[in-house]
Write a protein that binds this DNA or RNA. Structure first.
Length: 426
RNA sequence: GGAGGGAUGGCCGAGCGGUUUAAGGCGGCAGUCUUGAAAACUGCUGGAGCCUUGCGGCUCCCGUAGGUUCGAAUCCUACUCCCUCCGCCA
């Protein structure tokens, strides 16, 4: 959510951001409603002051044993008038809030302009492309042949897009997120949390998934709860409505959760294998930081995510997303894409964003600044990034480490988590 | 699921119709003292909004939403969450 004061003063910048991010919000209408609202507030405050003064006088008169009935009558009329004004305010405020919640964050100045993914900019590449002296197989073939991935039975149990990992495959999945959590907690200074996998509407709205993306969320209608699409939601909401001490900042959290996405707008896309699924595992990184440091913290966050891919020995590239490809709440985003030779594609395995104070304003997370006497209260900046998303990382491992006979070598860093196993074979 | 208790500022905690302009403590900030720090002492210190060049002024906020009243943290109703006990249960 943007600052209404900022919108009032910079409507053109807001209109630009709305257009660049392919959103549609009537800014003129918002500015008009806001002006109406402030006029109503002013009127009701003037009257309320009179009411307060009148009430005080009644109190004094009664203490002196004098008759106050005329004044009581007068105040009753005034009170009714105020209630009328406030009723109109009550109608106006939700309208303004609804518009505010639909305005996207403004892209940072150095974000490239562009309509879609084709305008993203490659920032750097890492790793060397493996040369195959045979035709590399896609992961679904490798996984099925090794009996570590069973898509048919996953679909039987639940539906397509719900993968079933078996045997070494299940253990590999577990090894991966344990490895990532250990790395981030032990080497990068993150505190591990294990949050609920269901969240309420306020949490979903706080991080910006609602109201825009409701069709993409799995929902438990009876309790108005949602399955988490990412650990970002429960973890960022951890400090909702809190004022943090500046000494606590920056706060780094990492969390494993399963993630659930309906992928409502993506039917027919990436239907084979487990590139795009409805349930997947992910280790997430979340930061609460001082505003001055947030872009520096974003660079560090990206490095922390990259470390995972480097240790796994996976070739990847880092993209800076253009205005049209960024998410609603983000002001700057880097994507990490791992190379998958079997499907012959770059796969997005991480998305790291600085939200500045956009989420902090929605979830009302502030900190007391030490500079001013008594401490001025300011919004924190929030960031998050995948560190990293599993099924696609698993794809990259299977496809990059495959051998001609269909077996797959296990990256060295994972072996301690695999009981020392070096090769997956039939 | 049943019975009871509770929710007040960054935290703890008093207040239960009208000097509440929300006591007091802790924490935070500044200062005195000190080689420095600690301790001690002194002062300042809730949040949101509106008006004002500034000084400052005003309004709202005591879990949430309604209601009663000239006036509500305080009384009434509903809801949410937390705690204790009972039942059920992985």
């Amino acid at each position: 959510m943007l600052d209404l004061n900022f919108i009032r003063k910079n409507p053109e910048a807001v209109r630009t951001a709305v257009r660049e991010k392919h959103e549609r919000v009537d800014i003129d209408q918002l500015v008009k409603l806001d002006a109406d609202r402030r006029e109503l507030i002013y009127q009701s405050e003037v009257l309320r002051k009179q009411l307060n003064e009148g009430s005080k006088r009644i109190s004094q008169l009664k203490k002196q044993g004098q008759d106050a009935s005329n004044l009581v009558e007068e105040m009753r009329a005034l009170s009714d008038k105020i209630k009328d004004l406030e009723k109109r305010l009550e109608q106006l405020t939700p309208e303004i809030d609804a518009l505010l919640l639909r305005i996207p964050n403004i892209p940072a100045p150095d974000v490239p302009k562009g309509e879609d993914a084709s305008a993203n900019v490659t920032v750097r590449n890492w790793g060397k492309r493996r040369e195959f002296n045979f035709q590399p197989k896609p992961h679904w073939e490798l996984g099925t042949n090794l009996d570590i991935l069973d898509l048919e039975r996953g679909a039987k149990i639940c539906g397509s897009g719900f993968p079933l990992f078996k045997g070494v495959g299940a253990r590999l999945e577990r090894a991966l997120f344990n490895f990532m959590l250990d790395l981030h907690t032990q080497k990068h200074g993150y505190k591990e949390v294990f949050p609920p996998f269901l969240v309420n509407r306020a949490s979903m709205t706080g991080t910006g998934q609602l109201p825009k993306m409701e069709e993409d969320m799995y929902k438990v209608t009876e309790d108005d709860l949602f399955l988490v699409p990412t650990a970002e939601v429960p973890v960022t909401n951890l400090h909702r409505d809190e004022i943090l001490n500046y000494k606590e900042l920056p706060i780094y959290y990492t969390a494993y959760t399963a993630c659930f996405r309906r992928e409502a707008g993506a039917y027919g896309k990436d239907t084979r294998g487990i590139i795009r699924v409805h349930q997947f595992d992910k280790v997430e990184l979340v930061k609460f930081v001082r505003p001055e440091t947030s872009y520096e913290e974003l660079e560090k966050l990206v490095k922390d995510a990259e470390a995972v891919l480097q240790l796994l020995g996976l070739e990847y590239r880092v993209l800076k997303l253009c205005t049209g490809d960024m998410s609603f709440a983000s002001s700057k985003t880097y994507d990490l894409e791992a190379w998958a030779p079997g499907v012959d594609k770059w796969l997005e395995v991480s998305s790291c964003s600085n939200f500045e104070d956009f989420q902090a304003r929605r979830i009302n997370v502030r900190f007391r600044d030490e500079s001013a006497s008594g401490g001025k209260v300011r919004y924190v900046h929030t960031l998050n990034g995948s560190g990293v998303a599993l099924p696609r990382t698993l794809i990259a491992i299977l496809e990059n480490y495959q051998q001609e006979d269909g077996s797959v070598i296990i990256p060295e860093v994972l072996r301690p988590y695999m009981g020392g196993l070096e090769v997956v074979q039939r």
